[in-house]
C-alpha cells in the first residue's frame, strides 16, 4: 500500500504542535468492505456548470463494481432535470471512527434501468438496496415516481487518513 505522510503547516492549522496525518490508499478488498457495511452515500451530478448532490441509499455488487439505486423524483423536480440523459456521476461514501477517517469515491455513468428490461438479477440486486426514506416525502408511494438506476464504477478508490492529535 502507498503511504503518504502529510505534515500540516502551523500557519494553516493554527494548532500547536503540528498535527501529523497519515493517509493510506485502501486495497480493493478494504474498499469493497466499506461499501458493503454502509448503505448510504452522497451522489453528485452535474449539468453544464451546475452541481447537484443528494444523499442516496444503495446496494453494491462487489463482483461487478456496480451500485444499484432507487431514486424518487417528480416530473418538475430539479433532480429529474439532472437525471436526464445518463449523467456522469460521483458517489462518495465515508466513515469516521475516533481519529480514523475512511472514504470511497466511485465515478461512472448513472444509467436508468427500463422497466421492460428487468430481470431476476435486478430483483435480487434491488433486494439488497435499501429502501429510500419515503417518510421525508409526506406522500403516498403511489404518488411518487420511483426509478431504478445503476452506477457502474469506472474508477473506484478508497482512502484512510489517521489523524494523530496531540491530546
Amino acid at each position: 500500500m502507498d503511504r503518504v505522510i502529510f505534515i500540516a503547516p502551523r500557519a494553516l492549522t493554527g494548532y500547536e504542535p503540528m498535527a501529523l496525518n497519515t493517509q493510506t490508499e485502501l486495497s480493493p478488498d478494504e474498499t469493497d468492505a466499506i461499501l458493503g457495511r454502509h448503505e448510504t452515500g452522497v451522489i453528485s451530478l452535474a449539468r453544464d456548470d451546475d452541481p447537484y448532490a443528494i444523499p442516496i441509499s444503495y446496494g453494491y455488487d462487489p463482483d461487478e463494481r456496480t451500485f444499484y439505486l432507487r431514486l424518487v423524483s417528480s416530473p418538475e423536480s430539479e433532480k429529474r432535470q439532472f437525471l436526464a440523459s445518463a449523467p456522469a456521476a460521483r458517489l462518495v461514501v465515508y466513515e469516521e471512527e475516533a481519529d480514523t477517517y475512511r472514504s470511497v469515491v466511485a465515478q461512472g455513468q448513472l444509467q436508468e434501468i427500463d422497466r421492460d428490461d428487468l430481470s431476476v438479477e435486478h430483483i435480487e440486486q434491488y433486494g439488497e438496496a435499501k429502501r429510500p426514506l419515503f417518510e421525508i416525502w409526506g406522500e403516498e408511494k403511489r404518488d411518487l415516481d420511483i426509478n431504478l438506476y445503476r452506477l457502474v464504477a469506472e474508477t473506484l478508490s478508497g482512502r484512510e487518513i489517521i489523524v494523530e492529535r496531540d491530546h
Partner: peptide
C-alpha cells in the same frame, strides 16, 4: 409488471423491485 415464474419467486423473496 409482467413477470415469469423465476421473477415471481425473486419478488416474493426480495420484495418489490421498485419500492422495496
Amino acid at each position: 409488471l409482467d413477470v415469469n415464474a423465476s421473477m415471481k419467486d425473486a419478488l416474493l423473496d426480495r420484495g418489490c423491485v421498485i419500492c422495496g
